[in-house]
Nucleic acid binder design. Structure first.
Lengths: 191, 191, 191, 191
DNA sequence: AATGAATGAGTATTCATTCAT
DNA sequence: CATGAATGAATACTCATTCAT
């Protein structure tokens, strides 16, 4: 009657864990089924292929983050505060989902054209969101008017990625990472 | 009589091309041998395994870049000029070796612990180099004294990666990329 | 309220179509269920297994033909006329049911011993029927008395099969096929 | 130095045996490798796929038979004697290679379009050969001039197939089968 | 040094069948 | 009667690696 978690979700969770622990290629469908405690066939009942499973996980994860950011950003007024939120939520997401971050990197060559396009679209959504915020900041007079918003958005994402736990050795705390990024970026684009 | 290119180099070149075109897992040793126009066994005469081959390519590529940067950096005086060189050489390298950049991303999970450690070491070398420059800049009075150099170095690398051609859609020219990065970063860390 | 066609018949029809379009092994139970617009489980309510379904289709088809031939053959007097009917009905059946003809060929190795025996039995029925006609023809004085009826029956079936549309490239019309067969066979066995 | 049988031949032989014992679908590549006493990979070293292996076996078998017939047929003068040779060699072939005969039947749906076309071509070669003989017989005055040679050739092949051991229950000896066929066919087409 | 035939462990995927609802 | 989610055994095929020549 309760059926706490659907089998599909069990599979996705198991796959997320294994993909991020071991990588896409190093994880077999059998392993996923085993960890999810379902039969191998069940994986194929819910997903057309291993790759599809991967994509569904990626896309849903990134979509969630986007929605969370887009939502929170409306709760504050100034462009500076908005960027603070973007940075924090992103860093928090990387912290919580090292898996996806890692998978994102690994997937570059692995997957189908259609998937790449979807990923690109998602990335563009993020860039648009940030560009918009910067644009608002310029109107507000908070940021320099001579900036091209799109490359700025790219740079911010790059800075954030620099603190993706995968790339990092030393262990800064999240708040500190955000501080460093904002310190440079906001100063860099300030009026 | 001349033997223009050694078979080992032919193999490395073929592997570099194929790895970057298709990714590590999607490239078979047979393909590499074929493209290099040598027998499969020859690959194994020069390299212990496919993974070793991969690593040798990666490491030699990144090493070259490091040496080039380290060398050029000594030819100028100020910290600002040094950072300009770092940014430009990195961006140029990405442009010339999209392959390695892509491979670097993909390799995160793929490979052995020992290899990861080597990659980390290389990355640390880069970070040290940049940290050192920033540190000098602080002493010079060019940069703020309250900065932690290591996170700054990380941030700079992150910003540079943001313009890795793999991640990008729009086609900025190299000079323009460098300008954007330096504009924000130098302003961000300036005294 | 009317329920024009029973689900069982829908399944058999769908299976017949698919088996003959694609062959036994190339057709999955899922496909059959889909084409029949019933659930997969329904197939298993009516048939013990995929093989049973196949057999039921085969046997019922061949049984129908046998009965039709056996019946029509009584409506004429002479052995020659009887053989004409045999040939025509067979050829007509092949034309109408290329599917079954094809399936018959394919099934030789596919299926269980018990099924093969049933098929053999059916074949023997056909051979008996024809042998009997030939035997009558000999008594009538229409056919040579030195003939062994059983091999003659076999030969006739073989000749008929030669015009099975599967084996053929050129498109003779049915009447013409029958004519060719009878021309040779009747002349060959005539007194 | 001797290497009595090449591994490729071992594989083909094993496959031929297993296919004819159990059928195409019922035989796994593993089984073939096992019976041939080679590794599974070796099968794939010599053949692109299971289907290719099947095709190579079929085509080479039928080609051999054709060549044998075409050759022997030139050693005798009259059309009647030529047809006797055709019938005998065919029947002998079926006897020796029940396997191939059976496989031929089963393959109808299994395989690729290109293969079907090749099979058709081979069949046409056989039909042409026989048509030609009949045509010569007509010129010789041995056979009726009102015959269409192509359907006659088809009929003869059909008669021969009727004695394919697969289709048969009782065990006639080869000579007797040939006699039956020729008795009817030659009488049927005689002047 | 170089070759390429041979190996066999490993993997994604299919599909007949079952059974709780 | 009817459904379709769940199962897991079975299979074709790949590919890094070895080694006799």
């Amino acid at each position: 009657m309760e059926e706490e978690t659907s089998k599909k979700e069990l599979v996705m969770q198991a796959a997320l864990e294994l993909f991020s622990e071991q990588g896409y290629h190093e994880t077999s469908v059998s392993e996923i089924a085993q960890r999810a405690e379902v039969a191998k066939g069940t994986v194929y009942w819910y997903f057309e292929s291993k790759e599809q499973l991967f994509q569904e996980i990626m896309l849903s994860g990134l979509d969630n983050l986007y929605n969370r950011i887009a939502e929170q950003v409306t709760t504050v007024g100034g462009a500076v505060e908005k960027l603070e939120i973007v940075v924090e939520l992103f860093l928090d997401f990387f912290e919580q989902n090292q898996e996806l971050a890692r998978m994102y990197n690994e997937s570059t060559n692995t997957v189908s054209q259609r998937f790449k396009e979807q990923m690109h679209l998602i990335r563009e959504n993020y860039l648009d969101l940030i560009s918009q915020i910067i644009s608002n900041g310029i109107e507000e007079g908070s940021f320099r008017a001579d900036l091209k918003t799109e490359p700025m958005a790219q740079i911010l994402l790059g800075m954030i990625s620099a603190f993706n736990p995968i790339c990092q050795s030393d262990e800064l705390i999240l708040a500190s990472k955000a501080e460093h990024i904002l310190e440079i970026f906001l100063r860099g684009i300030a009026e």
